[in-house]
Design a protein around this nucleic acid. Structure first.
Length: 212
DNA sequence: ATTGGTCTTGTATTTACGTCA
DNA sequence: ACTGACGTAAATACAAGACCA
């Protein structure tokens, strides 16, 4: 799966961005000039640009004839479809019929366009989420590294005796261990340093914002 | 300039699944 | 409970243009 920079320029997440897929994008502009500019409105109206076989359930001739030609939507058709998609991501039969009449397409073609459009939206969203999670992971890894380094430093600068007394008992405990207080049954400390100075509060690490 | 291979994009089909009457 | 119609998502096929060596 690869998405070109041109297509990612018109991302649509849950925030609705004016849909400008394919035909109106910078990179895709050239692609639709040829075929789509050929037919006039009359050609579309008369169905002379109908490139699909009469039997639209079967794109191929029964006698093994030439396969269907590929339909390319005009810019205007794409724009109208995008507009309607922005209003509604699914169509009821009535809307489908109306839109198809308006676009001089078959309802089935409108339906297929919406199916594919939904799929593209979902793909974009998944890619965005993936990117977000990657950045998040990177950020957390950095933070983890910093914290581990800080722990090492704290251990290194520890000048006191290698053991520490808990507040409730006089049993010496090795430094840097989690201890459960036998009386109140709570974890009392994680490191020897924490016993004296409270929980470690990393100064360098701030809550990271990943959005934007 | 052109040619052939590969990539990308967009439309269409197939298949599987869920819902509803 | 079973069934058929219908709608949708996901996977896939395929045509056609873009790109590049």
């Amino acid at each position: 799966m690869a998405v070109s920079p041109t297509s990612s320029a018109c991302l649509e997440l849950t925030i609705s961005v004016p849909g400008t897929f394919a035909s109106s994008g910078e990179g895709g502009a050239m692609r639709d000039l040829d075929i789509n500019q050929v037919p006039s409105e009359e050609e579309w109206a008369t169905g002379s640009m109908e490139l699909i076989e009469e039997d639209d359930q079967n794109p191929y001739n029964n006698d093994g004839g030439p396969p269907r030609k590929k339909l390319r939507l005009t810019k205007q058709q794409s724009r109208l479809l995008e507009e309607s998609f922005r209003q509604n991501h699914t169509l009821n039969p009535k809307q489908k019929e109306t839109l198809a009449m308006e676009l001089k397409l078959k309802p089935r073609q409108v339906e297929v366009w919406f199916q594919n459009r939904r799929a593209r939206s979902k793909l974009k969203q998944t890619e965005m989420e993936c990117e977000y999670l990657k950045r998040w992971f990177g950020s957390l890894s950095e933070q983890n590294k910093r914290l581990q380094k800080e722990v090492e430093e704290l251990r290194a600068i520890k000048v006191g005796p290698p053991t520490v007394m808990t507040s409730h008992s006089c049993e010496p405990l090795p430094a840097s261990t989690l201890t459960m207080c036998p009386q109140c049954e709570r974890v009392t400390t994680t490191t020897a340093q924490a016993n004296f100075a409270g929980p470690i509060r990393p100064t360098a690490s701030k809550p990271t914002t990943l959005a934007g």
